[in-house]
Design a protein around this nucleic acid. Sequence first.
DNA 1: CGCATACGCGCC
DNA 2: AAACGGCGCGTTTGCG
Length: 433
Amino acid sequence: MKDRLKDIERARKEKVLSKKVYHLEKELVSVLEGMEKTGIKLNINFLKALSKKLNSRIQELEKKIYKLAEAQFNINSSQQLSEILFKKLKISAEGLKKTPGGVVSTAAPELQKLKGKHKIIDSVLEYRELMKLKTTYVDALPKLVDDRKRLHTTYHQLGTTTGRLSSSDPNLQNIPARGEWGQEIRKAFIAEKGYKLLSADYSQVELRIAACLAKDKKMIQAFKENQDIHKITAAEVNNIPLVKVTPEMRFQAKALNFGVLYGMSVNGFAEASGVSWKRAKEFIDEYINDFSGIAKYVEQTKKEVKKKGYVETILGRRRYLPQIKSPDFRVRQASERMAINMPIQGTSADIMKVAMIKLAKKLPREARLLLQVHDELVLEVKENKIKKAAEIVKDVMENVLNQPIFKEVKSILKIPLKVDIKVGNNWGKMDYV
DNA sequence: CGCATACGCGCC
DNA sequence: AAACGGCGCGTTTGCG
């Protein structure tokens, strides 16, 4: 026993869990144990080959970087890299952040700003990317499989302040997904012979929940009509018709919507969307104008956390934020952002946890839960049961708010949940069903 | 030698 | 001027 029950009891005593959430968490224990024990199969040979490909490209980049720097150094050392870029090569560090240690930062977003200033930048960025993938995933994961080549994570049920699960040893919630290399790595996660992998993910859950908690009419309407929410947002903030929205506008609108979930600040949004501080301010003001419910939710949440000292999800999972009374306004602001985010992220976690419990009860034996990645579940299903499993998974996840535990709060969550189901022989290439 | 920190970065 | 939320892990660096 992994002390999960003890953690749950402790959290209940500390008034983090309402009675409902307490019972929910207790039911989840055996579900997680099953998932950990089952594990997911890894294609070791595939990763070995991938490792070689990555290695040859990394070698090339290394040579190139040494040549451009006219020096050999440890590219993996941010300190040495900073020295080379800004002292030896004299690349201007103007407008770049410094690390708390006082060195010019070489983090990816900073290096992006230097693209075009020196040929070495592109090579360093690619080197970093490939090195990360190789060491953290491609080389590390094969060492951890059991005799059936299956990988077993440990889920931490109350390891986060919002109610999300976390995963460690290994963390299977941060397996690469983007880019061509990311896709390749996911192809190494495979189904047992005679089985397929089935992935089910909630579409835009957090934004749907935010719209509901904020009772924002416009946003709720958009989701009810199954519209492209970022596109709608773009049309609203630019005061133009939908058809005139450009990809650039949509990108900025997306950053605005994410900003809501994270407790938007002008700087954060400017940074994320690449617009000036002034433009960012204008965008946010317009957004607040258009989505007045969201603005009200933000203000009300700030007021509430100041008064009560905590915020909570729709099921009564709490996060205490004593720092909200800090004399340092930056610390206070940070607490405000956490307060805004927690009920949204936490409610999403509540919903997923309930769905998992229900699924564990309802699925046939030939379908087993393997992974949870916050808004996504990955299952391994016997080929002849795919259709059946897909139906059950979609039905349970989309209709989870009809479960008795949500009875008293159902009137708040008015937006239908949408789930996309995909099936494939591996996690990297899957087809919608 | 092992351990803690800083830094950077993968995911949602 | 300003770190928009939540995680875990590999490498480097400094320490005992």
